[in-house]
């Protein structure tokens, strides 16, 4: 589904990712771990197409297409979803209305019928229930005044509604208390299937207790210094990141 080959990218002239390769197949869950500043979030932003991040080398092939040449909104329509570490607040945009717009953008792209507010409401109610989100969040403005935890739930709500093929969740666990983490993880597990893939970006092993990864990659100073199966996460939990530094 996704082939990342020797990807190099940076921000405002400084290279942050210095050659990353990854191969992700449908049905797989990949965890990307690493200390702060290792390039985890940069990778997520590059995959989503953030205009401030510059790709300086390598390639990303998504279902046979050169992803780096595709606009962010087209990537979304092709099934890539990014769960933001810091979801932006947009006062004046009704959350439910926004979710319906996003849903319908996907529908139109796939040649399907748009849903009116009433029909969409059924989907929204079901998904919000799954994430134990209070009803009031549908009437509130997009992330406006949401607590950290509610913002993250709102990201997963969008993921549940958009049903992406590839979801990149950037530190979705940060700012969540243990109850919220459980609810969010349960939600992600329900969305997960043999047809979609998941990249979990996290600093802590805690999330991986709830969402079991197939592979764990450790990122440090812009490169993957170690890859392994889920036991690697436990090792990191016990020993920290210090024993893993790039050898160059």
């Amino acid at each position: 589904m996704l082939e990342v080959k020797d990807l190099r990218a940076g921000f405002e002239g400084s290279e942050i990712i210095k050659g990353i390769s990854l191969s992700i197949k449908a049905g797989e869950v990949h965890a990307i771990m690493g200390p702060n500043g290792s390039g985890k979030s940069t990778l997520a932003k590059v995959l989503a197409g953030h205009p401030s991040y510059e790709v300086t080398g390598g390639e990303v092939i998504y279902n046979g297409e050169n992803l780096l040449e595709i606009e962010p909104e087209q990537r979304a329509l092709k099934g890539i979803f990014m769960g933001f570490q810091y979801p932006v607040e947009i006062p004046g945009v009704n959350n439910a209305e926004f979710l319906r717009m996003a849903y319908n953008a996907r529908q139109i792209n796939e040649g399907k019928e748009e849903l009116d507010p009433l029909d969409f409401d059924d989907i929204l109610t079901e998904k919000m229930k799954m994430l134990s989100m209070e009803k009031k969040y549908r009437e509130r403005n997009l992330n406006d005044g949401f607590s950290g935890g509610e913002k993250k739930k709102n990201e997963i709500l969008q993921m549940a509604i958009l049903q992406p093929k590839l979801a990149v969740l950037d530190e979705t666990d940060s700012g969540l208390d243990i109850d919220a983490l459980r609810v969010v993880s349960d939600g992600v597990n329900k969305i997960k299937s043999a047809d979609n893939a998941l990249i979990l970006i996290t600093h802590y092993q805690r999330l991986l207790e709830y969402i079991q990864p197939d592979y764990v990659h450790v990122l440090s100073q812009g490169i993957i210094v170690k890859s392994g199966e889920k036991d690697l996460a436990l090792e990191l939990e016990a020993q920290g990141y210090d024993w893993l530094t790039p050898t160059n």
């Binding site: 197409g49 990537r75 947009i90 717009m101 953008a105 403005n141």
Partner: peptide, 22 residues
């Protein structure tokens, strides 16, 4: 904000209109 809306599949035009209105 513009990028956020685009990552949800809204076109540049629609996203800009939505943000201006909001």
């Amino acid at each position: 904000q513009l990028f956020y809306l685009k990552t949800r599949g809204l076109s540049e035009k629609v996203a800009k209109e939505l943000l201006t209105k909001s």
